[in-house]
């Protein structure tokens, strides 16, 4: 079982990122489960989403308390919430930021990777400069960094599930995949 926790703000697409990742993983034949931390949804409020994958059917039905990795869609979140709570030692923290990994201080137990998903999203016309929708760019970075899913599966999932701008979303994922160091 591998467990991933997404931290984002309402409107950035963190919940959809979890769903799309589960769709991509399912294409590769593993059992998946994706769900948000259930709350009253508000734009810009901190939101969590969870993805589980396993080669066995998944019976567990609780939130993820000890994730293997975390993905942060908004770089201001670590200042207000304890994003590494329960995170396993050796985990990867993938964070949407124009900064370098060494600009963040999450301690020595984790591998920090940054990707400028906001710029990629804006470049592809996803959301606005102030409210970029960064989830599909982040998914491309996940494919490269976490190596749990092929970029082809991610792109297929995005194209199938996007209600609008399918090509732009797929292009954002591909660009992030190319840009980030795996």
């Amino acid at each position: 079982m591998l467990e991933i926790r997404f931290h984002s703000r309402g409107g950035q697409g963190g919940v959809v990122a979890g769903k799309l990742l589960s769709v991509a993983l399912f294409k590769e034949g593993v059992h998946v489960q994706a769900f948000p931390a259930f709350g009253v949804e508000r734009r810009s409020a901190p939101v969590m989403a969870f993805v589980r994958m396993d080669d066995q059917p998944i019976r567990i039905r609780t939130q993820i308390y000890n994730p293997d990795h975390i993905v942060i869609l908004d770089q201001s979140l670590p200042q207000m919430i304890d994003v590494t709570l329960g995170l396993k030692s050796g985990a990867t923290i993938l964070i949407n930021s124009e900064k370098k990994p060494e600009d963040f201080n999450f301690g020595d137990a984790f591998n920090v990777v940054t990707v400028d998903a906001s710029s990629i999203a804006v470049k592809h016309g996803l959301g606005s400069v102030t409210q970029p929708i960064v989830n599909t760019a982040i998914l491309g970075a996940i494919a490269k960094v976490l190596k749990i899913v092929k970029i082809e599966s991610v792109v297929d999932a995005i194209k199938e599930e996007s209600p609008a701008k399918a090509e732009e979303n797929a292009a954002a994922a591909l660009e992030a995949f190319e840009m980030v160091e795996g």
Binding site: G18, K19, V32, Q33, A34, F35, F38, R61
Partner: peptide, 11 residues
């Protein structure tokens, strides 16, 4: 169940 089932994605 609300959310735990209703809003959870599975195959």
């Amino acid at each position: 169940d609300a959310f735990v089932l209703s809003h959870t994605y599975e195959a």
